[in-house]
Design a protein around this nucleic acid. Structure first.
Length: 271
DNA sequence: ACGCTCTCCTGGCCGC
DNA sequence: TGCGGCCAGGAGAGCG
């Protein structure tokens, strides 16, 4: 489940292999992603050159000569660079054949991901228009969260995962950040103080940066552009540790569902 | 506007 | 070995 660190790793990983390369051909084997891929995408992209790879929220932005590809990996999406003779398997839905002989390959078993094409500024695209602040920028601060939540009854974990407030945080890092901040996931957002939000923001930034440095979190199948896993899973304090004990106080971790998402916390360390 | 639930999808795992 | 049921969850759609 790629969140900000995993998407960032993918972007960095593919950039060196695809930037300044011409797209020779696009092969779409299955256009049924979350939304159908634009019918003319293959024809339109052919002969364009990839200029820049960027990330906004969990979207990968591939800026080409005459527009931008907006790629979301959903739950199980992968974007890898492979040699052109690498055989496509069942869930390899799209290949971008490049002038250097490599293939930028999109793979997605569950097909929760999406690919859009825009000729406008990507930020004006409807999927990106209402996104919140980037968590690794100065705009994401304790004061920002405090100000945005004075009327919010929603629990803090759902708020952290609300992409209209702050982007890039999914279930894994929301669980982890709340543990590190000592805040219980069920707390209504409006009951959290400015000083608590300041700690939470600091922990979110710390965890996201650390996860990027470890190459992301591989729970089941995340791999980077070269097909290698990440190692942040070894740092997880609560996510995936249902039925086990808190590393800090040895209390049994509690497992609940918030907004249909598995939520794990320490009832002693998190208040 | 807000907050909740439903929905899309496949692979892996469990129990029988 | 097969089959049904459940779970994983990003995020838009729809509803009260």
């Amino acid at each position: 489940m790629p969140e900000l660190p995993e998407v960032e790793i993918i972007c960095r990983g593919i950039a060196g292999h695809v930037v300044n390369q011409q797209i020779v051909k696009v092969v779409i084997r299955n256009n049924k992603l979350r939304w159908p891929i634009w019918t003319n995408l293959a024809k339109n992209l052919s002969q364009q050159t990839i200029k820049v790879i960027n990330r906004r929220a969990k979207y990968i932005l591939v800026t080409c000569t005459h527009g931008t590809l907006i790629i979301h990996l959903g739950m199980t999406g992968k974007l890898r660079v492979v040699a052109s003779n690498t055989l496509a398997t069942k869930h390899d839905h799209i290949d971008f054949l490049l002038s250097n002989g490599n293939v930028l390959r999109y793979t997605d078993p569950r097909r929760f991901g999406s690919i859009h094409w825009t000729t406008k500024m990507p930020r004006e695209h409807k999927l990106l228009l209402h996104l919140g602040v980037e968590p690794l920028t100065i705009k994401f601060s304790g004061a920002y969260l405090f100000d945005r939540t004075r009327e919010k009854n929603v629990n803090i974990k759902s708020l952290l995962m609300d992409q209209a407030i702050v982007v890039g945080i999914g279930n894994i890092y929301a669980n982890e950040a709340l543990f590190h901040a000592g805040i219980r996931p069920t707390r209504p957002a409006k009951t959290i103080s400015l000083s608590e939000y300041t700690v939470l923001v600091k922990q979110v930034k710390f965890i996201l940066k650390k996860a990027i440095n470890k190459g992301g979190t591989t729970i089941k199948d995340f791999v980077n552009a070269e097909g290698k896993p990440g190692y942040f899973v070894q740092e997880l304090m609560v996510y995936g540790r249902i039925g086990r004990f808190c590393y800090q106080c040895n209390t049994a971790l509690q497992n609940i569902r918030l907004n249909q998402r598995s939520t794990v916390f320490c009832p002693v360390c998190q208040r």
